[in-house]
């Protein structure tokens, strides 16, 4: 028990420090303020609509705009934070001081990763909280399904964050991992395209097409598919014919955790040979 607590003590302090340092970044605050403005502004979008028609369209507008804003700004915050926590330390040379202490590389990385997650969670909670309030004020009932949506959004971000973090471990500046993180998000949403490549490749007998087809099949099986998380939009606009949540939500949480862990392990594999 002592060994476990002493192992996690180092990462805990590093995470706390990473959080304190990260939350003060101007760009992060900028993203957050913008997202909060969009979420807040969505409540006024109904002024563009015909006031004589008594409908729930404005409610739908609020939901869709807020989900989109959380996705866009959330992923920007996720990528920015995950891409910069390690390269910034290398740039500032703080990493040398930390690693010269009795802190293992695994502990260091775990601390940094947990710190980044803490920042992402706090930002997500702020955005989600405002969205929650906007819906509550409009509907008058607790939009509890929204909490599931936010939880799923976090697990989607966990995957993006973990792989961005892995890329950042190979870089010395944060610019490349930021580009890499955005690439992870976009390709993660286009994984379905690989299935299409596989289908098209199987329509010819050319050896090159066959190889491309095999590669696409392999990648389709291994790469995380972020489209699976489109359920988060579905939940918010819930329909009574959705008895699927009990199966989908646990599966998606497990899915996010597995790929999050895979990303973190990749980061460690990259980082352990890095000369710092």
């Amino acid at each position: 028990m002592n060994a476990i607590s002493s192992f996690f003590r180092g990462p805990y302090y590093i995470a706390l420090y990473t959080y304190r340092e990260g939350i003060r970044r101007k760009m992060l605050i900028g993203f957050l303020v913008l997202s909060l403005l969009v979420i807040f502004g969505s409540s006024f979008i109904s002024s563009f609509l015909d006031p004589s028609a008594e409908t729930d369209i404005d409610l739908k507008l609020i939901k869709d705009i807020c989900v989109a804003a959380i996705s866009i700004f959330g992923v920007l915050i996720t990528v920015y934070i995950s891409a910069s926590v390690v390269p910034n330390e290398i740039e500032n040379k703080v990493i040398y001081t930390v690693l010269s202490k009795p802190v293992g590389r695994m502990q260091y990385l775990l601390g940094k990763f947990m710190g980044a997650q803490l920042i992402i969670i706090v930002n997500l909670l702020l955005m989600g909280g405002l969205f929650f309030m906007a819906l509550y004020l409009r509907q008058g009932i607790m939009p509890t399904l929204l909490l599931w949506s936010i939880l799923l959004t976090y697990f989607e971000f966990l995957i993006v964050s973990a792989f961005t973090f892995a890329i950042s471990c190979a870089a010395t500046t944060s610019l490349v991992p930021i580009m890499g993180g955005l690439f992870v998000y976009i390709t993660g949403n286009l994984t379905e395209y690989l299935k299409d490549v596989e289908n098209r490749a199987s329509q010819t007998t050319e050896w090159l097409d066959m190889i491309i087809g095999k590669v696409a099949t392999g990648l389709y099986a291994v790469l995380p598919n972020l489209q699976n998380f489109s359920l988060k939009t579905q939940i918010v606009n819930g329909q009574p014919n959705d008895p699927l949540l009990d199966v989908f939500i646990p599966s998606l949480l497990l899915y996010g955790s597995i790929y999050g862990l895979a990303g973190f392990l990749c980061a460690y594999v990259i980082f352990w040979r890095k000369e710092v």
Partner: peptide, 20 residues
Amino acid sequence: VIVLLILVLIAGIAMNLRMR
């Protein structure tokens, strides 16, 4: 770590198939 990574990736493939 390498073995763990491979196991996690295999679990990822299994989850991918399940989600599909």
